[in-house]
Nucleic acid binder design. Structure first.
Ligand SMILES: NC(=O)c1ccc[n+]([C@@H]2O[C@H](COP(=O)([O-])OP(=O)(O)OC[C@H]3O[C@@H](n4cnc5c(N)ncnc54)[C@H](O)[C@@H]3O)[C@@H](O)[C@H]2O)c1
Ligand SMILES: NC(=O)c1ccc[n+]([C@@H]2O[C@H](COP(=O)([O-])OP(=O)(O)OC[C@H]3O[C@@H](n4cnc5c(N)ncnc54)[C@H](O)[C@@H]3O)[C@@H](O)[C@H]2O)c1
Lengths: 216, 216
DNA sequence: GCTATACTGTGAGTGAATTCACAGTGTGAT
DNA sequence: ATCACACTGTGAATTCACTCACAGTATAGC
């Protein structure tokens, strides 16, 4: 109950993740203190929003010195990474699936990742440094490696099946790329990334007569 | 000024796109009339939200018969597609870029798509039914084919450059997959799809002790 | 040491988006 | 023909996220 992490809204978590990424970048450039507006501008939010977020997670800076970059990263991480996810299980080693596997292998070699596909040519092999299994091995693999997050990159008509299998294998979070709303138990968190929808959205707003847009 | 399309919020547009997709699916199944709750449940919104949205775009159903699927699709499309986007220009023919090119070629052969890459091995060729050009051909190609939307799938450190080139070539909308906030003129609409962030977000909420979540 | 400054922390205010709740109504059943 | 029902359309209420604005304060400069 007293865990502040439980009070974070989805938006707040997204911003905290972005702040942390930005802070790490700054830190590598040798910048160890940072003001709310330094964090706000590149992320497209207001300084007040940043301070509010940091207040929410209980991190305190100092006037005239701002926030300590390293300490803030640690603080954010202690909230976000408090509970280890074990690893990721990706279903559907197609174009998008391979792109993600490749990304994870290159950028996050620390994550454990397992891949699954119906296609027997893919199952059994190793793609982008990640072992690819057959679907019926899912439960065993996930249990053994205690993976709690699933990634769905199968065609739309297979997405529900993939999700159901992942849930049965024990995941409690899903990142879904299929243009379908998945039906899962309430305890399972689902995040939809609908690329086709986003594309249509951009097409719309690109040509909408946008009024008094604020300057960046 | 009286164009209702200008009054649509980002969220509203996203929902309308989802409604339309769902309606098309229903229509193919031979269902020509639909109630607000039929549209709401699979999209994860409330029936009231659906009615409010349709009211906003000025579409009227009838009690006891609901909305006419075909007419509603037409109505939504008349708002969303009012202004033709010409086509899409994708920069960065890597893993993700190829996945998107492939998707567009298969699912949306009606869209014109051009690809661009620094890598001379890629430029000049044809990937997934889409001609790949060199960067310095961008302005010419986009002007000629009147493409108004850019897709950025280059590494983070090349994203700003890609965006700047696209804007100079005349695009007024960007779909950005790089984990960077792009700096562009205010008239240009930017939509960020931050896959890595979404992945971290799922990992967090998967393990957050979720309170009184509503049942699906 | 003292002061001016530029920041943080936060209560209050604002505005947008969503939901509630119900009056109004066309339809299918009888 | 009549009625009961289940739906729509929508003003009002609510929720939520964000922004404002300013008091409080640690620092750097003098
Ligand atoms: N690639 C994109 O840019 C893009 C854009 C928009 C949406 N999407 C969505 O993302 C998803 C994946 O797209 P993609 O381009 O990678 O498709 P793809 O066809 O390249 O890959 C799909 C993979 O899933 C596997 N598969 C099929 N049925 C399966 C099942 N029942 N269980 C396990 N694996 C199965 C196939 O063998 C294949 O390897 C689709 O739902 C698509 O609509 C992709
Ligand atoms: N693949 C994923 O699942 C994934 C996940 C998270 C984020 N992203 C982001 O998406 C972007 C693309 O990822 P990817 O996996 O496709 O990378 P990738 O390395 O496979 O592809 C990058 C492509 O961009 C080209 N390129 C490099 N510099 C360029 C320039 N200046 N102009 C034009 N083209 C250039 C390269 O030749 C290459 O073809 C990256 O910003 C990455 O951070 C991808």
């Amino acid at each position: 109950m007293p865990d502040p992490a439980d009070a974070l809204s989805e938006h707040a978590v997204e911003r905290l993740i972005a702040y942390r990424r930005h802070l790490r970048q700054r830190l590598m450039q040798g910048c160890d203190r940072i003001y709310s507006h330094d964090l706000a501008k590149p992320e497209g939010v207001t300084p007040a929003q940043v301070r509010r977020d940091l207040m929410t997670i209980g991190y305190t800076g100092s006037p005239a010195r701002g926030y300590d970059a390293k300490g803030l990263i640690t603080h954010i991480s202690s909230l976000l990474d408090a509970r280890s996810v074990g690893g990721f299980a990706l279903v559907g080693v197609g174009h998008l699936g391979r792109a993600i596997l490749d990304y994870l292998a290159r950028q996050h070699p620390e994550y454990k990742v397992a891949a699954f596909d119906v296609n027997p040519d893919k199952a059994g092999g190793v793609t982008h440094g990640c072992r690819c299994y057959m679907l019926d091995e899912m439960k065993q693999v996930l249990t053994q490696q205690s993976m709690r997050v699933g990634i769905v990159t199968v065609p739309a008509d297979a997405a529900q099946d993939a999700a159901t299998r992942l849930v049965e294998a024990g995941v409690c979070g899903l990142l879904n790329f299929a243009p379908v709303r998945l039906r899962v138990p309430a305890r399972v968190y689902v995040e939809n990334v609908d690329i086709a929808l986003r594309l249509e959205k951009v097409a719309f707003f690109a040509l909408a007569s946008r009024p008094k847009e604020t300057q960046e």
